[in-house]
Design a protein around this nucleic acid. Structure first.
Lengths: 199, 199
DNA sequence: GTTAATAATAGACCAGTCGTCTAGTTGTTC
DNA sequence: GAACAACTAGACGACTGGTCTATTATTAAC
């Protein structure tokens, strides 16, 4: 775990994300990842004990960044909770709708593929998704408090909104079209701002 | 030529569905499918011109059954449109929540994996999903007419409900838990029966 | 400067991949 | 029973998959 060690480790992770977020976990071989990362093939098993373990690290690494960026957005005091949340969904729509993207969601891409394949990757994904839903729930709660979100909103709505967006992203992928995401945006607005007088 | 009623043809499709709906498209080899189907390799390439083409047929075959069963349910005159629709979602929850299932949804499993891999499979999936959404939309419309569903429901709600359930299914897979589906059921009830007095 | 320990890499390994090929087996029709 | 198509059979090729051992490079200690 020294200088070059860390650099190569990060390179492999970065290349892996770039390739796997587009082609999926099973359809990307170590050789391809290592080539893009510019790291010799023999080195892979020096840094990771298996491809599965690598996948686990990839997911953890992804969520570490992702959750940090949510935290940053959700702590923006210049916006109401409703606006923070809507900014989040708007950003989701933006990132998922561009054809070739840098920040593709690993839950969308790997959720279904990996869950029946590897317990450790499944759990990593699950924990990450749970954290995201929890943060959304907190933001909704604070929106109820600052009166920018429907006070009668149900507790499980954070979960359902996340599901809605996840599903919309899969369909957007299938259609190569962003209308599912726009539709999700409209439904989200409806759910959050029910019984609320807009200013 | 290539009679699709052929027993081996159907065997290959059935074995393929059984394996691929659990392990994904890339993670199942022809050898494994053929072994389960009890059909020799040579026959595969007699019936299908490639694995990709096989996948396309698999998806079409799946939707052919699936859409027929929706038609049957949605034409049940003993139920209100609302009840038909809720029966549909309830069945969805039931099928997706059992751990080892016979009727796993291919859109859930293959949507994200296949869309970046094969155009023909992507389009097959897209067409199928479109048809399903369309049927849901029709059922909602007839529910508005028979007053069993919120008359102010938005046009794109069929789409959003489908997205919600798709996403909930992915998360249920990730969590190995059916609560996401129960949450979707509750949200669906809320959306459909808003402004409606239950009998 | 030599030794010891660790960091990093090269390349072999074999099971598995999809797809091709050709010989063989049925089965129907004249 | 000959002819021809429909279908079966599985060996084979060329390649890729993840994994691991043997080896080299680099650093640290004396």
């Amino acid at each position: 775990m020294k200088s070059k060690s860390n650099e190569n480790y990060q390179q492999i992770l970065a290349a892996g994300y770039q390739l796997i977020s587009v082609k999926g976990f099973n359809h990307v071989g170590l050789a391809e990842i290592l080539k893009v990362a510019n790291v010799p093939k023999g080195s892979f098993y020096y840094y990771f004990k298996s491809k599965e373990h690598f996948g686990e690290e990839l997911i953890n690494d992804y969520f570490s960044d992702y959750l940090a960026s949510i935290d940053q957005l959700f702590s923006d005091v210049t916006l109401s909770s409703y606006d923070r949340l809507m900014t989040y969904w708007q950003q989701w729509a933006d990132t998922q709708s561009t054809p070739c993207n840098e920040k593709k969601c690993l839950v969308v891409k790997l959720g279904a593929e990996v869950s029946d394949l590897s317990e450790s990757m499944r759990i990593a994904l699950q924990k990450g998704a749970n954290s995201v839903i929890e943060k959304i729930a907190q933001c909704i709660q604070s929106g109820v408090e600052d009166k920018s979100i429907d006070p009668n909103i149900q507790d499980h709505m954070a979960e359902s909104l996340y599901h809605l967006w996840l599903g919309a992203s899969v369909v957007a992928k299938m259609k190569k079209d962003k209308t599912p995401l726009l539709s999700a945006l409209s439904t989200t607005t409806l759910i959050l701002s029910n019984n609320v007088i807009k200013k």
